[in-house]
């Protein structure tokens, strides 16, 4: 017999940790997707594909900025002590991924903005005529555009990696404490971004390229998920218990049905048929990928909080 009873019943702590609700998964999802969009836009700039006027590199920066702001809004809503949010920017804590994240988010904005200023949206141009000068300055310098592309890929990569590192540095939560989690979040961010951009792309060649790229990302994501589970299941007791949450435990159905099935395998099959011209490109597969990416964050954040060290109480 192993029995443990506790008189503690702190809100959001007991019976199991649930301090991070919808805001953090939504923020991690949006952060990952924006990171992916930055990498994709950066790649197109670097490869000079933006010269096609209908290239997505010319109009996704505005969407990225709006989405990132929504993500930061979700993050703000999660804070318990909202009026003190400015404290994030009075210091830099090298050991705190959240401190890194706060500063990364500040650095990401100007990089996306630089991309946006190449082809500013008309409603902004109407209000701020001076922007035309900056646009002209950038567009006269192909090397600068390539550097903006590199900057977008670099900071997009950092943003995507950070969303995983934020969780994986927490040794107290065995499910998160995997050195491969950042790869999973980065790849998932890329796949959801490719799916989203594929859905809204006007240029047929870009749409085809993004569908192919998304297939690659989805295959890698599947491999990373399997590697992460193998890593956890072959680790110490706490990690084995954490893996069991997804392998027979309470998070098994949402993880395998929604994340792996509907979020990866089915859209992968649909998109493989589409790129081989067996069926037409539709929004079905991208929507499934995006939904799967969102549910992945919900499952990992929720199951990660559920995972804990407990067995040692039973001595």
């Amino acid at each position: 017999m192993h029995e443990i009873t506790t008189t503690r019943n702190n809100p959001e702590i007991d019976p199991f940790l649930a301090v991070w609700k919808w805001e953090i998964p939504v923020y991690l999802f949006i952060g990952g997707m924006v990171a992916g969009m930055m990498i994709i836009a950066g790649y197109f700039l670097f490869k000079e594909k933006h010269k096609n006027s209908d290239s997505i590199a010319n109009y996704i920066p505005l969407i990225s900025i709006i989405l990132l702001s929504l993500g930061m809004g979700a993050l703000f809503l999660d804070l318990g002590h909202k009026l003190f949010v400015w404290r994030l920017y009075t210091t830099f804590k090298i050991l705190s991924p959240m401190s890194w994240g706060a500063w990364i988010l500040i650095l990401v904005y100007p990089v996306i903005l630089a991309n946006m200023l190449m082809v500013p949206p008309s409603f902004i141009l109407k209000r701020f005529q001076q922007i035309k000068m900056i646009t002209k300055y950038i567009n006269e310098r192909p090397r600068l555009i390539q550097n903006i592309g590199i900057g977008n890929m670099l900071f997009g990569g950092i943003l995507g990696i950070y969303t995983g590192v934020l969780l994986s540095t927490m040794g107290s939560r065995p499910l998160w404490n995997s050195s491969i989690l950042w790869v999973l979040f980065l790849i998932s961010g890329l796949s959801t971004a490719a799916a989203f951009v594929h859905m809204i792309a006007k240029n047929v060649n870009e749409r085809e390229l993004l569908a192919k790229a998304d297939n690659g990302f989805l295959i890698i994501e599947l491999i990373v998920i399997l590697l992460m589970l193998i890593g956890l299941a072959s680790s110490s007791q706490a990690q084995i218990q954490a893996a069991s949450l997804l392998l027979g435990g309470p998070y098994t159905a949402p993880f395998w049905v929604f994340v792996v099935g509907i979020g990866i395998i089915i859209p992968l099959i649909i998109q493989l048929l589409a790129v081989n011209h067996k069926i037409k490109h539709t929004a079905v597969a991208p929507i499934m990928v995006i939904a799967g990416g969102l549910i992945l964050r919900f499952v990992i954040v929720s199951a990660g909080q559920y995972s804990h060290y407990l067995y040692s109480y039973f001595r």
Binding site: V19, W20, G80, K82, R87, M170, S172
Partner: peptide, 11 residues
């Protein structure tokens, strides 16, 4: 100085 981000709680 606490912003209530809950990172310490999860950690």
């Amino acid at each position: 100085m606490c912003i209530g981000c809950k990172a310490c709680i999860a950690a």
